[in-house]
Design a protein around this nucleic acid. Sequence first.
DNA 1: TCAAACCAAATTGTATACAATTTTCTATTT
DNA 2: AAATAGAAAATTGTATACAATTTGGTTTGA
Lengths: 228, 228
Amino acid sequence: MSSKSASALKRASTLKEALEQDIVTGQLAPGTRLEEMGLATRFGVSRTPVREALNQLASIGLVQIRPRRGAVVAAIGLKEMMEMFEVMAELEGMCGQLAARRMIGEDRAKLAVYHEQARSFAQTEDHNGYYDANVCFHECIYLGSRNTYLADQTRALRNRLAPYRRLQLLQRQRLSGSFAEHGQILKAICDGDEARAKKLLSEHVTVQSGSFTDFIATLPTELIQSRA
Amino acid sequence: MSSKSASALKRASTLKEALEQDIVTGQLAPGTRLEEMGLATRFGVSRTPVREALNQLASIGLVQIRPRRGAVVAAIGLKEMMEMFEVMAELEGMCGQLAARRMIGEDRAKLAVYHEQARSFAQTEDHNGYYDANVCFHECIYLGSRNTYLADQTRALRNRLAPYRRLQLLQRQRLSGSFAEHGQILKAICDGDEARAKKLLSEHVTVQSGSFTDFIATLPTELIQSRA
DNA sequence: TCAAACCAAATTGTATACAATTTTCTATTT
DNA sequence: AAATAGAAAATTGTATACAATTTGGTTTGA
C-alpha cells in the first residue's frame, strides 16, 4: 500500500499523492525536513517534479515552505489547530445540515450500511478498521450534501487534521462514544432534521466546544508557539 | 497599480501576486489561455518560475491546469458557483458570529469607521471606491473573528469569486442596499448579537440587496460555461 | 575556553536543454 | 470539396546546469 521505496514513479502528481499519503498517515511526522535532492533520488526523478509536488502539498497546507530555507511537513501550532477545528466543526455541520435536507433514500441506506460496518470495528476495538469506516461514514455525508465544493473543502481540511485526529482517537479510546454519536447523526439525517444533524455533527468534530475554544482563540499570537 | 507590462519581476511569488491581481480584477477574463512561454517573456523570466506561479494559482482555484494541455484562467460553472456561494454564506456568517462574540471595543470602532467611509462612496455612486471600502469592511470582520485560518479561507473564497462579484456590484441600487445591510451588520456586531450577525452576513453574501437569480441573470454567458 | 569572523559545503531558486505529447497545417484520397 | 492521414510546429513535462543564499565548521583572536 505504501510507497516508501517505490522506484518507477514517473509523474509529479503521483509523487504528490505518495507524499500526501505518507503525511496523512503519519509516516512522515510533522516537522520532518523534506529535502528536494533526497526525495528526488528516493523516487528516481529529478528535482523539478519534486518541487512541483512540494508546492502542491504546500498549497493544501500539508507542507510548509520557507523561502530559501527548504520544506518541512507542516506542524500545526496549538492556536492554529484550534482554529481549524473550529472551522471544521462548522463545515461538517453544514454538510450534515444539507445532507439531511438533500439526501435521497438510497443515500440514507448507504449511510446506514457504513454505520453498521463501523459497529463491528467498534466492538472489537479495531482502531485502524474503525478509522477507515469512520472516513466512509463522513465521506458519505459529504457527498450527501450535494455540494461538491463544500465536500472538497471539508475533505481537504479533514485530511490536513488527520495526523492529529488519529492520535486523538487512539489516545482517548473514543471508539464506542464516536459510534454512539454516529447513531444519533444517522437518525437525525434520516429524519430530515437539519438543525439537529448540523448540531450533532458540529459537536462530533469539536474537541471541546465552547469556552475553551474561545479562550485559545482570543490569546495573542505571540503567547502561543506557533510555527518556528 | 497594475503590472501589465512590468519588466523586472524577479521572484516567483511576486509573479503569482501579479497574475492573481490581474485575474481577481478581471483584467484576465475567465477562460483566457495562459501560455507559459508567453508569460515568461512578458515578465522577463524563464518558464520555471512561471510554472511555479501557475501551480500556486491552480491550488487556490484561480487557474485550471489540464495535464499536457496548458493552463487557463478558471471559469466557474453555474453549479459550482452556486455551491461556492452557499459555502461563502456559511463562512461569512461564521466570521460575523465570532466577530460579534470576540471583537473588542477598538475593533468595533474601526469597523464603524470603515462603514462611514463607505457611506460617501455609496452616496456619490462611486462603484470602484465602494468596492474597496466594502473589502475593508469585510476584512475587518474577518480579523474580528480572531480565527486566522477562518479569515484566510474566507478571504480566499472571496477572491476566487471576486471577478463575478465585481459585475454584481455594478448593478444599480446595489450600493445603497449593500450599505444599508452593512449598517445592520455593524449594529448586530456592536450589540454582540451573534445569531443576528451570522444571519445578516449570510444573507448579505447570498442575496445582497437582490435575488441570487438576478445576479446569475446578469452574468455574461461566456462566464457561466461549464468546464469542458 | 569562548566568541566572532570567514571559508566551504550544501541546498534552494532560476535558466536552459531535451523529451514527449498535443495541436495545426498540408497533402492526398475519395 | 470534404475528410482523413501524416508531418511539422508548438507547447508542456522533465532533466540538467548554473547562480545565489543559507548552513556548518574551522580558524583566529582575545
